[in-house]
Write a protein that binds this DNA or RNA. Structure first.
Lengths: 147, 147
DNA sequence: AGTGAAAACGTGTAAATACACATAAAATCT
DNA sequence: AGATTTTATGTGTATTTACACGTTTTCACT
């Protein structure tokens, strides 16, 4: 491979897994965040809250694995959601552990955000088409499973 | 839709366009960055450098459009790459404009990074399979085109 | 020529991300 | 029991992201 070949550079830009995934994630996140804005949370926070709600009580490290998120990244996200009053933590039997639970306010917020999420999700799926979306989602799941 | 339905929450988590894209982008970025590490740049910087190289000279706003990146985000990225000596800017005819060009050092770095990029790209495509990858990439392009 | 709109860019602030490193508690080994 | 390793988590630092806002320059219209 030679970088001086313009076709080569174009091919790299078009096919790069990292670039294409990041760009799509940026664009979709922007749309989700804009729509979710009036609820007061971001799409990322929505996902975290939903995952916590779905499990009643879960350890930080475990939650990080579930969300495919670096533990320290999630730690900061959780701190923020805690300051916002959406989740709280309780000590488990093990004094190292930090059990994460959703608060009443968190559930109320989720319920307010749900129809907004639905709208954003529908918009994104619509612009690409349900057919293509199925293939895309399948690929994303494969990546998450194996990477 | 009712959040109290556990199946509903599971379905949302599995299908959310934003979450699934962000998670995949995170995981793939981690792998790319780890492999590209010895070259001294991140995958994101690699993409930007490549796009600049491919165009010889390009305006910030134009480049942001090409990369599907918020202009102000790219502005920060470009500042960093400038401090690293990988790109430089020259004034155009219009005194508002800021033409971005890659430096010799930038090209040398790209050439060093290219084989690393290839390895990362191959790894990611392999773990998901060329078949599935084609469908995934096609979906990502659709999103970038329409969003 | 002057005024108002548009274009190009930067900065303040804040969320999201992750690596390197640190700490504390539990588990395991000798 | 004491030492070592593993587990669970937090913090320092730096990159990436984007909205809100501001500045300067150019363009368009009257």
């Amino acid at each position: 491979m030679d970088l001086r070949d313009k076709e080569m550079r174009k091919e790299i830009g078009l096919s790069c897994a990292c670039f294409n995934l990041r760009r799509a994630a940026r664009l979709v996140t922007q749309r989700f965040d804009r729509i979710l804005r009036e609820s007061g949370i971001t799409a990322n926070q929505f996902s975290i809250l939903m995952a916590v709600y779905d499990r009643e009580r879960i350890l930080l490290t475990k939650l990080a694995g579930v969300l495919g998120m670096e533990r320290t990244t999630l730690s900061r996200n959780v701190s923020l959601l805690t300051r916002m009053g959406m989740i709280s933590t309780e000590a488990g039997s093990d004094r190292r552990q930090r059990n994460i639970i959703i608060t009443k306010e968190g559930i109320i917020l989720l319920e307010k955000a749900l129809p907004l999420w639905q709208r954003a999700q529908r918009e994104v799926v619509d612009v690409i088409g349900p057919e293509k979306w199925k293939g895309l989602l399948s690929g994303l799941h494969s990546l998450a499973k194996t990477l």
